[in-house]
Every structure is written in C-alpha cells, then in structure tokens.
C-alpha cells in the first residue's frame, strides 16, 4: 500500500506550472488525470508521496502556485485489476 498526496488545481496552467517547479526543486511528482474519486475543475493533478506534502506546499507557496485541495490517496498498486480486451 502506497500513500500519496493528490494536489488538485483550479486550472491546467497551475497544474503544469507545479509540475515544472517540482522538477526544478527535485521533488518526485507525477502529473496525472484527477482520479475518479476526487473532483476538480482541472483534469490534471499532481501526485506526490504523502511524506513530501509539506515540501510541495512550500514550493507552491514560494512560487505563487495556487492549488485547490490536497487529498490523501492510498493505493494498493500490487493488486491485480481485472480487465477485458475490447
């Protein structure tokens, strides 16, 4: 089980700006579509490790990146999902 922080934004520009700044500061992040369980005005969100949440908040504050919400997201990535070929 991995625990992530999902950061949502009001618009795509902030999501892409956050991606750039996280990279600049060497913070491991992933820009992904907002998971179905969270809703957001913007389709992209940043996925970071939960332990990096405070650093991410600091980077965003320092660089005037406005975010919408931060969610705690737990995922069991090892669990095999069932799927069908279409």
């Amino acid at each position: 089980m991995n625990t992530y922080a999902i950061i949502t934004f009001h618009n795509t520009h902030f999501a892409l700006k956050a991606k750039k700044y996280f990279e600049k500061y060497g913070l491991k992040s992933d820009t992904i579509p907002v998971p179905r369980e969270f809703s957001s005005e913007c389709g992209f969100c940043s996925k970071i490790l939960w332990k990096d949440k405070n650093i991410a908040e600091e980077i965003m504050k320092k660089n005037k990146i406005i975010y919408e919400s931060i969610y705690r997201w737990e995922r069991d990535e090892k669990k095999e999902k069932k799927f069908n070929f279409v």
Binding site: L16, K19, I32, P33, G43, F44, K81, F83, N84, F85
Partner: peptide, 16 residues
Amino acid sequence: NLIKAFISTIKDLSVQ
C-alpha cells in the same frame, strides 16, 4: 501531458 495522461489511464480501465 495529455498523451502521457492518456497512456497512464489505459492501465486503470476495465477495458483494454
């Protein structure tokens, strides 16, 4: 970013 999001989303869908 959209193509990356598209490809990463496929794996989470119930249809492949």
